[in-house]
Design a protein around this nucleic acid. Sequence first.
DNA 1: TCAACTATGTGAAAAATATAAAAAACTCGG
DNA 2: CCGAGTTTTTTATATTTTTCACATAGTTGA
Lengths: 212, 212
Amino acid sequence: MKDQIVISKATIDRLPLYFRTLRQIQQEGVEIISSEELGRRIGVTPEQIRKDLASFGEFGKKGVGYFVRELIRNIGEILGLHRNWNVAIIGVGHLGWALANYRNFSSLGFNLAAVFDVDPARVGQIVSGVEVTHLDYLEKICKERNIHIGIITVPAQFAQDIANRLVASGARGIWNFAPIKINVPPEVRLVSEDLSVGLSSISYYLSRQADQ
Amino acid sequence: MKDQIVISKATIDRLPLYFRTLRQIQQEGVEIISSEELGRRIGVTPEQIRKDLASFGEFGKKGVGYFVRELIRNIGEILGLHRNWNVAIIGVGHLGWALANYRNFSSLGFNLAAVFDVDPARVGQIVSGVEVTHLDYLEKICKERNIHIGIITVPAQFAQDIANRLVASGARGIWNFAPIKINVPPEVRLVSEDLSVGLSSISYYLSRQADQ
DNA sequence: TCAACTATGTGAAAAATATAAAAAACTCGG
DNA sequence: CCGAGTTTTTTATATTTTTCACATAGTTGA
């Protein structure tokens, strides 16, 4: 293991892609796969895949390829997916609801342990097997249920406050969907999703096509 | 304008961020802003912002800053947000429903013009002001309503087929949320979102913290 | 009008990332 | 057991992207 070397962010972001695809490949009954074939299925060059994987150790067998089962286990461990993280969703609007019901998360080992909202109509309802708690109890519940990661799907103006409260309650990771910049202490991992980026970039490229 | 120079993808992906933040700033009544201040609010270095903007022209005024209204208009035009793209959502599951109701899209000038599903229980329902049509009529409706961009939120195994049909019906951009690689002709712009990436990368960094 | 100040625009350096080439290790048929 | 064919790993090179430093241009107040 080359633990001392810093792994590039780009590599980390590709690992989930490899992981997902390898599991699909495993379900098809394939036991060994080459970087060539894996790259073809993912849409990444074989060199890229080999380089990414090699930065964590020697997972492949020269002249043979990668053992699918073994590689899935290794990538899973690298990503920490074997740790059963407890996640909470704050804000059961359309998006929060969709994320709560997103099958992929549980299949990746994330455990939806709490869901919060302020709307009295939503509090008490069951969302993906979890009862919606009023936001007032965020600190209490997060500590009780040992929440590691908070998913913020509240309107932008409340996002920073929710983030502060999550951090104060022990959360070490925050996944923010509110369209605003939020600040967290350096030891807390923050990932922000901006859904307008994807659509806007399509718009950009279509506009340029049209101009020509 | 430096049209002949290829703009980096990273720059394009930051423009929506600038756009969104500038509109917030405008709503606060601010008329002029420096790259310093804008950078502080977005979480990007001022140099980065200046460089990004300068690659499209000279939008700022030296010694002054950027005129907020003017810059919003310019970035909007660069991104093609003034063109009123017609978008269709295919698959009214949790995520499709959330996206259909996502306020930000209409505020960016995207016009939800069609929604498709196969479930008889959903066909005929109104989602965000649009009646859900059966998937069988995808080609017909997309042509009739001049759909520019298709948003794919169907299960992975159907995604490629939907993409093919969208392209055949005239769509020039595809925003794919299905967790699988899809192929489109080179003239069609494809952006794929992978929601498992964000959460997995948080898991990765938390794991490493814990190890230490 | 001039000097001090402010903030953009830009070219060069540095860092990060991706691609290509070479070296090493394994398989398989004969 | 050997040599041709595979496929990974490692090293080197190229490209992309970010950061840095500074020249340029506009503002303001005396």
